[in-house]
Simulated scan of single mutants.
Amino acid sequence: MANSPPAAPSVQFIDIRADQAGQRIDNFLITLEKGVPKSRIYRALRKGEVRVNKGRIKQTYRLQAGDQVRVPPLRVSEKVVITELSESLTDALESAILMEDDDILVINKPAGLAVHAGSQIQLGVIEAMRIIRPENRFVELVHRLDRDTSGCLVLAKSRAALLNLQQQMKASETDKRYLTLTRGKWPAQENIVDLALQKNSLSSGERMVVPDINGKKSKTLFEVKQEFSGCQLVTAKLYTGRTHQIRVHSASQSHPVAGDEKYGDREFNKHLRQYGLKRMFLHAWQLSLKHPISDEPLTFNAELPDALKDVLKQLEKQ
């Protein structure tokens, strides 16, 4: 994996393509300058540091094909830019592709790989796929998965596809199902958890999601598939897509996800390490949606990783 040296911050002049037209300037900058605080971007817009066709614009301005955007240096310090992937990561991602056409790319995301780079993460799925597919000028995440969650992840290869798929998810027109191993025994075969969720920040700076009546509406269906000693394999169907929804909803019912270091049970996690569990047992197993261009119904299935299959085999022996 090759790293290029940090470049000195400089003003960029970007010519807007037809496939970029229609989006608000603030959203364009947020996508362009990942990792830069939104407050910094909005300050640059207010102060006129960002200009379109040499003129000041408001944050609500919608870009048009042919516009030239002046983008000032926005980062306090430049991050190392990764321009080349290791052969093993390239092969792993290529073999993880479940479907690809001109508009969408669906992969079975490996656990441990973030979906995008962040303050402590130099490389994520989206950056890696842009390196692997340099011919595609547009590749964007449609939704997210936690770093330790594996399974179905959808990327858009055109702006029209991105907007359509995001609208499907916002309108709950997609069907997302996960496989997870949880502590204890659920009270019924099917269990609905309907608790609003709110993001909180602790004094340590850690971000947690908690049930809160003033939070965002959230709903999950947990269905028991297989029972083991002290735990159950369940499917979780998302009716909403909140951050850490499955993990918080299951923990709120005293059935935390196995291997979850944030919301889980320490003793339960320690017990399952005896059966070979070295990660969080949460896998985006199935995703159904409509093709963003043809409207064709599509269903994707991501096979459970071997490491999680092996844990289930060890549990079955008990």
Rank of each mutant, 00 (worst) to 15 (best):
A161L: 13
R137N: 06
S288L: 07
S254P: 01
D175S: 12
I30W: 09
P5I: 10
A251Y: 00
S77Y: 02
R46Y: 12
E33A: 15
A2H: 11
P6T: 14
I14A: 05
I57P: 00
G276L: 04
E316I: 07
A258R: 07
E316L: 12
S158Y: 02
S218M: 07
H283S: 10
P256Y: 00
V52N: 03
G184Y: 04
L272I: 04
V154W: 12
R62S: 11
R24K: 13
L45P: 11
V125Q: 08
S252C: 05
I246K: 12
N301Y: 15
R62Q: 14
Q274W: 01
G241W: 01
S172P: 00
D175C: 09
L179H: 10
Q20T: 07
L74V: 08
L165R: 12
A2P: 00
V224T: 13
K313Q: 13
S254L: 13
L272Q: 04
T90F: 01
L312M: 13
F138Q: 05
V193S: 10
S201D: 00
R273N: 12
S86Q: 03
E261H: 01
S204D: 06
L145G: 10
W186C: 01
F228K: 03
G259P: 07
V80L: 09
M208K: 02
I30Y: 06
S204A: 01
D265S: 03
A160C: 10
E190A: 12
A8E: 15
A18N: 10
L308E: 09
K79V: 01
G48R: 05
A284T: 14
L85A: 05
Q64L: 14
E190I: 01
L145W: 11
